[in-house]
Design a protein around this nucleic acid. Sequence first.
DNA 1: AGCTTTATATAGCGTTCATTACATAAATCT
DNA 2: AGATTTATGTAATGAACGCTATATAAAGCT
Lengths: 201, 201
Amino acid sequence: MTTKTSPRGRPRSFDKDAAIATAQQLFHEHGYDGVSVANLGTAMGIKPPSFYSAFGSKAGLFAEVIARYADTEGRFTTEALAGDGRVVDGIERLLLTAAHIYARQGMKSGCLVLDSTRNSSDIEARTITGGMTDRSRAMVEDYIARDYPDRARTLSEMVMIAMKGMSSAARDNASAASLENFALMAASGFRHEVAQNARNA
Amino acid sequence: MTTKTSPRGRPRSFDKDAAIATAQQLFHEHGYDGVSVANLGTAMGIKPPSFYSAFGSKAGLFAEVIARYADTEGRFTTEALAGDGRVVDGIERLLLTAAHIYARQGMKSGCLVLDSTRNSSDIEARTITGGMTDRSRAMVEDYIARDYPDRARTLSEMVMIAMKGMSSAARDNASAASLENFALMAASGFRHEVAQNARNA
DNA sequence: AGCTTTATATAGCGTTCATTACATAAATCT
DNA sequence: AGATTTATGTAATGAACGCTATATAAAGCT
């Protein structure tokens, strides 16, 4: 059973998971620095003491938001790289899926992890996104290593640069078609890259 | 002669061009929101009234900084696209040059125009970088149109996504080698793209 | 019922933000 | 010399920032 017996004190008057989901929307749209604790409290319908009782700090909430992202939208990375096909096909799937997910839908565009702490001077927040970004890159590296073990690190870095380009461009309102065109171009370049340097094919 | 006759009132006690160069360094390193007027004043060695007398506002100074960038570091775009060679070669030169210029050198990395207002909520500052970004893209479009007039717009957007990827990755401390690898991969994808859709070759 | 524990609301903390009143200093113009 | 014009230094403005001290309310435990 997942439901725990009720804890000791006064029960929380709001849904913490829903509040985190609300915060995720705000951080995705405006970035970490662009959302104030006052904004968050208003959107969640709670006052500062409730906020700090539940999340500890703004950065603490942000850590929970990023963890949630990995389990929701961020899963497309794992899914695109699943299966037994060739690595070059999986990378193309990853890039194309990112193009579609990053393209603006309403107030949301780009990747929360890659871009929400850009230009922020908050070291704690940057560490959170930086860690998650490198975990994503490591996943790509492990996947690529199936076919190209000796160049997996380098190739994963190249893929991440492409992902960052699509995320940034999406936040600048690039169309889904533009992002898709780029994804195909990058995938084509990736195929050429591994074909030309076939030392580890 | 370029020196104008002295204006009426008390002369400025600091070098305005040097102050703009100082501001450019700070904006490049920390982004628009990451630099306060107090920071700028300290670095320039002036007090707020002098600052506002010279630049009007923080955004006014930023506009002068961005204009200066176009005439200094930003010139690599024009230079890479100069000459009579094939468009595919010029695009590869552009991407490779960007890779080298964007790679971290001291406190500076990435592109000031592409990334300094990312996640900023200051509409004026975003408008300044957005305008300059689109002017750069238009230059790339005009260049590409020499060989591929019907697809120049689309292809220029793809190139800009690659530039944004390199700038963002450079700001995340990507190595010069990583950026160069990506530039070559993107250039290879670009060649393949225009070769496959050779409707306007 | 009373104690303990946790969450809430009200109100305010100190800091930093971009910007500005005000008086004064340094230049040109008449 | 005196008026005009522009720049400077001192000091402060109102607003927003992340966060918290204090008191009270709502639950479980004994």
